[in-house]
Design a protein around this nucleic acid. Structure first.
Lengths: 400, 400
DNA sequence: ATATTTTGATTTGCGTATTGAAATATTAAA
DNA sequence: TTTAATATTTCAATACGCAAATCAAAATAT
């Protein structure tokens, strides 16, 4: 393989194109530091392989003379991938093209939240096929599948060490799925996938170091360092929900005490509320939480106290992460409005106050409300990343 | 500059040699993935430039036939650098050769702990010259100077945002020193430097992701990710001492509440001890702490309680870092025996218990007791890194 | 109209790094 | 001594990236 240094050039150029959305070759050369001549050579290759395409001459609002630039963009039609998210009682699937455009979506209900790995592979396969038929596509038109779930997942090894969705421990889920679905499979923790979604399609575009915090029923975190999702040595980094915010504090689902999750997750709030309030007439925990939110809004001081402490604990935990990481940007990525109390101004202020003070602007904090396909889109982003990786490796220029 | 891909090869080979200590070319080729032919070419260049040297054929304990391998190692005599550490009332300086061998050391007392930047440059210059004359060297035999201090330091920009040793804020100390000492100057936070010392000469050799925790009067942390010291977006990452371990907790020197430092630093312990014990007859705080340690050992329950809580807070703070980072290795790097209580087995166990449990071995925790030149050696490691960088850049093969 | 200028993209020729294959060196084992 | 094994070096072939030159397409000047 002499084609080794070329690969790095191709990678640089391609990711610059993706990052920019649409760029002319001149700008690619300027941004990557690669000479215009080489940019021409590389883009010609990528064009030939169909990974990118030329668009019409760009918007000439800034009338310049000279030869007009020709913008390049990722060719959406090059690949279609599926992003799937295993959650409590459903499998959400999204089909997304190489540019990130949504092609189809589908949600498949589950009868219970935890399944054996064998059951799960069958369910995932079914959900995938249902989505494909909905979109009128066949499996061989797909280039890869990304799958996310909460829990501890080793993305490199394709192992699920532990997940609330999987009955067994240490399941080689990637290979199990790969055996039934003959496509490249990519599995990861869901918070990491949201980080990738932000990196590819959201606020993280072009930001090299940022943190994404997600709240579902637990608290998750994804870390991007140097334009890459950081996964830790054992593949179980960023367990933000289980950082401790109180010595010998509240009991957590994980069996330890004082975890952040044990203060801010829905079950934690309801546990507290149950001390004074009896939600006997409300059945679902989601509705109970809603009632608690209403109570706080309505002036119930106990309910307010509960949310207040949760917010302050959240701020403390997040400030710790910032003090350790010093990211450029923190994205609070949420799906449900129920967690608004954690994103309140006073919480954000509290975070800012708890960060070590220097004479530089503090990291930016943005709140990003996604639709309910956030997770699946993240899984798709992961798949796109993997597929692009393969595509950039394999095709070795000299197709002739 | 066509000499761009060559540089990367040289870097790879050189750092592989440094990491290994002594290696034969075959192994370099295997480890770096570069072909043997190219390894020969590159090592020939490095040899010509004097950056590395051949050693006699290695220990033939594993008798193999065939042509014996010739080991290569970094040539210590290639460069000498100075590592300097600004601490409370002294400047410690170490002269170290390119291999990391100590050549000379010197400590220069200071009359006060905080100086203006102008005073400081003069003091550093004096300390450097004194050390050089002690070793019988002149300035032009030196290739670089590394300087570490506690506080918030922007290593890239050469700025000291804030330091207990410097009177002003946001001082361009690197350039100020560079103006008086005509050598490459490298400044950084001291905890980062200890991380580099571990990476180059200590337990961090060959480990790609690890964390170093240092305790002096404050608590510092250095993070190595992907073989590089992570410095954060604004250059103020890893402020471990100011992560919060208690909501609205004890008051810290930094003005905030609940910082880890406010529970484990010497001043924090003495502050608590003062409530029940009067150390009126003891003058230095170091001696007071010693007395407190003795009291605890002697069975004083109050003293024991104080240390116990400090240890548990420390464990909690560190467990948080581990839950976020998932490092391969944690190095507790200490100079003074006084902090033994933080390194006690029960503290380490407490850390392990607070880490999220998966079916993989937990990160290794090692305690590394350095002499008092730890800090200066770290500064020297930083300087060596910088000097090597320059050396690998500049010499462009074709010396002819 | 036509020439000139400006800017972007492409082609060309060259120096050089990398590499596979072959050659060479050096030792142990047969 | 011969053979086998292993390490290193040499050498020719290749491919890569770059600077400079050239081509292309537009705006602007004359």
């Amino acid at each position: 393989m002499v084609n080794d240094q070329r690969e790095s050039g191709r990678r640089q150029v391609f990711s610059a194109i993706r990052k920019a959305g649409r760029v002319a070759r001149v700008d690619l050369a300027r941004e990557t530091g690669i000479s215009p001549a080489t940019v021409t050579a590389i883009t010609a290759e990528l064009l030939r392989e169909g990974l990118i395409e030329e668009t019409g001459t760009p918007d000439r609002s800034d009338l310049r003379r000279g030869r007009p630039r020709v913008d390049l963009k990722v060719r959406g039609a090059a690949h279609v991938v599926a992003g799937m998210k295993l959650s409590h009682l459903a499998i959400a699937t999204a089909l997304i093209d190489f540019e990130g455009t949504m092609i189809a979506e589908h949600t498949c209900a589950l009868d219970k939240s935890r399944h054996s790995a064998a059951e799960l592979t069958a369910l995932v396969e079914r959900a995938l096929d249902e989505t494909l038929s909905k979109a009128g596509l066949s499996r061989d038109q797909l280039s890869g599948v990304g799958l996310g779930m909460s829990g501890v997942v080793d993305a490199m090894g394709g192992l699920v060490h532990w997940s609330p969705s999987v009955a067994e421990r240490n399941v080689p889920l990637r290979d199990m799925l790969g055996a039934r679905i003959d496509l490249p499979i990519f599995i990861d923790n869901d918070a990491n996938l949201v980080a990738m979604a932000e990196q590819y399609f959201g606020h993280g575009r072009g930001v090299s170091d940022f943190i994404v915090v997600t709240i579902e029923s637990g608290v998750g975190m994804g870390i991007v360092i140097n334009n890459e999702v950081y996964r830790g040595a054992r593949g179980c980094g960023a367990e933000f929900g289980h950082t401790k915010v109180q010595l010998d504090g509240a009991l957590c689902r994980c069996g330890q005490r004082g975890c952040l999750e044990a203060y801010v997750a829905d079950y934690a709030l309801l546990r507290e509320a149950a001390t004074t309030t009896d939600f006997a007439d409300i059945t679902t925990s989601s509705a109970k939480l809603q009632a608690l939110v209403e109570a706080a809004r309505g002036g119930d001081t106990t309910a307010q106290m509960i949310f207040d402490r949760a917010g302050r604990m959240f701020a403390m935990g997040l400030a710790n992460v910032v003090n350790i990481f010093d990211p450029q940007l923190i994205i609070l990525s949420g799906e449900r409005m129920q967690f608004d109390y954690l994103y309140a101004d006073q919480v954000l202020d509290s975070i800012r106050r708890s960060i070590i003070q220097i004479d530089l602007p503090p990291p930016q904090i943005v709140i990003h409300k996604w639709g309910d396909l956030m997770w699946a889109k993240g899984a798709a982003a992961f798949a796109i990343d993997g597929v692009a990786d393969i595509a950039l490796q394999n095709f070795s220029g000299n197709a002739a």
